Computed example of a mutant assay.
Amino acid sequence: MELKFTNAFKQAAGLGIIAGMRTFSAPVVVSHVYSRHPSRQLKNTPAQFMQSIATSKVFKVLAAGELVGDKMPAAPNRTSAGGLIGRFLSGALCGATVYRANHQQPVIGGIIGGTAAIGSAFGCMFLRIALGKRTGLPDPVVGAIEDAVVIATGSALAKHM
């Protein structure tokens, strides 16, 4: 039996992974795409705000602040309760939005996106620690590499939405 993943599943999971790495980057991708290419499926739904240019701009400002703040010594741990809740909600919002836009059940997309965000938060934290130890690179440099991965992955996802 061959397991096939729908485009919406891949989008929700990919956006969840990005949300686990950088909370606001996944909503940037979704709001950027849907504010420029609105989906009829999102009209008159709770996710309609994701199609607003203003929403897209707000998420971009928040994401830029997060990229800077992540490099600060006082940056909170991504696996703290607050960090995990924010990442889960970000992934869930994005997963639900793309599922709804693809004529599928938003609750399923939300679960996929939120779960992927939690897994990614832990996986990327362990990867970041290991990479720093293995290479001797300072944490802000490893964080900048992670930023590049987030941006490249977000751009690739946006092209297929």
Rank of each mutant, 00 (worst) to 15 (best):
G83F: 03
T97D: 00
G143T: 15
G82Y: 06
A81I: 15
T79S: 02
R87K: 11
N77R: 12
K60M: 15
A116F: 10
V142R: 04
V142N: 02
A54E: 11
F122I: 05
I53S: 10
G132S: 12
I129G: 00
N102Y: 04
Y99W: 07
R78F: 00
C124D: 01
I129L: 08
A81P: 03
E146F: 02
Q51A: 13
G82E: 10
A116S: 10
T153K: 02
K71V: 02
Q105A: 13
K57G: 09
V61H: 07
H103S: 13
T115K: 02
V149F: 12
L89Q: 08
I151R: 06
G123N: 04
F49Q: 08
T135A: 08
I145N: 00
T115D: 00
V150W: 04
L62S: 07
G132Y: 03
L93N: 07
T115H: 01
V98G: 01
N77G: 06
S80Q: 14
R134L: 14
G143C: 06
R100H: 09
M125R: 12
G82H: 04
P73H: 09
P46D: 10
A54Y: 12
A74D: 02
T45P: 07
G86K: 12
Q104K: 15
V61D: 04
G110I: 11
Q105R: 14
I145K: 01
S120Y: 09
G83I: 13
F126V: 02
L67T: 08
G143V: 07
N77F: 09
L93G: 03
R87P: 04
Y99I: 08
G136S: 08
T79H: 03
A75V: 06
P140F: 05
A101K: 12
G132I: 05
A74V: 13
T55P: 05
F59N: 12
G123C: 04
G119D: 01
V61L: 15
S52M: 10
G91Q: 05
G114K: 09
G154Q: 10
G65S: 10
A101D: 06
T135F: 01
G82Q: 13
S80V: 03
P138S: 03
A117L: 02
P140A: 04
S80M: 09
R128A: 14
M125V: 00
P73E: 11
S120V: 04
P106Y: 14
V98N: 02
A74G: 00
A96T: 13
T115V: 10
K71D: 06
T97L: 03
Q104H: 11
P76M: 09
G91F: 13
V150I: 15
G83V: 07
S80L: 01
A130K: 13
A64F: 15
P76D: 10
I151E: 00
P106A: 14
I129V: 12
V142W: 00
F49N: 10
M72T: 03
A152E: 05
G123T: 07
P140D: 06
P138W: 00
P73N: 11
I53N: 08
G82N: 13
A96D: 10
L131F: 11
I118K: 03
Q105I: 12
Q105C: 06
V107D: 03
V141N: 00
P106N: 14
N77Q: 12
S56W: 14
L131V: 15
F122G: 01
G83K: 03
K60V: 09
P106S: 13
I85T: 13
P46E: 12
V98H: 08
D70T: 08
I129D: 09
E146K: 01
R128Q: 11
M50G: 04
R128V: 07
P73W: 03
K71G: 00
